[in-house]
């Protein structure tokens, strides 16, 4: 009986997780999270932008590390075109001390992050957005004071090597948005490190 109960509960848990999170076209909620400079950042800070490239990422994950310079390049290319990057670290620093706020500040200084790198201490934003891994991109399109999810997924199609990339997904999605073209596949998948949820 206990076994059956466990199986039922596991299905229940997986069904609950699967039901959560944004899909392309959903309205994205705003947040108010602490940046590495100590100031609070919300989507209201980007009221002049056309959209925001929200990247759930962290310090410790090798996939996040592999994409670090590509995330910097994304911001350098697209902030001027109206799509700045906001990097959000959702990981529990108790489980992974490398992902603590202090280490975020340190890492951002070392690599001179040109974008906001904020901490999602309650993990509420990652949960609401439906982020499951790092890196995990949610491209948001601004309509007046509302934001809509325009693309979810990977930055490009090769996590191991930037030079072997064939499809630059985020670039293509922004390009499609700019041209008012919705033909581009708006969801992609890539492997990454699972978000370390608080226990």
């Amino acid at each position: 009986m206990k076994n059956i109960l466990a199986v039922v509960l596991m299905f229940a848990a997986s069904a609950l997780y699967a039901a959560d999170g944004y899909k392309v076209g959903d309205a994205a909620r705003d947040f108010n999270l602490k940046n590495i400079d100590g100031k609070m950042i919300s989507l209201k800070n980007y009221a002049d932008a056309k959209g925001v490239i929200v990247v759930f990422t962290c310090n410790h994950c090798p996939y996040a590390k592999a994409y670090e310079s590509r995330i910097i390049d994304l911001h350098k290319t697209f902030a001027a075109k109206g799509y700045p990057v906001v990097a959000i670290n959702p990981n529990d620093p108790v489980a992974y001390p490398e992902d603590s706020f202090e280490n975020m500040v340190k890492r951002a200084k070392e690599k001179s992050y040109p974008f906001a790198y904020v901490i999602d201490e309650t993990q509420e934003i990652a949960k609401t957005y439906g982020a499951t891994k790092t890196p995990h991109v949610f491209l948001l399109k601004r309509n007046a004071d509302k934001y809509e999810v325009a693309y979810i997924g990977a930055i490009d199609d090769n996590s191991e090597s930037a030079s072997a990339v064939k499809e630059k997904h985020v670039e293509k999605a922004i390009d499609a948005l700019t041209k008012g073209n919705t033909a581009y596949t708006m969801t992609t998948k890539a492997v990454g490190c699972s978000i370390k949820w608080k226990k």
Binding site: T132, K133, V191, G192, C193, S194, I195
Partner: peptide, 8 residues
């Protein structure tokens, strides 16, 4: 189809 790509 439900796999988002995280491990394990």
């Amino acid at each position: 189809s439900t796999w988002t790509g995280s491990m394990p």
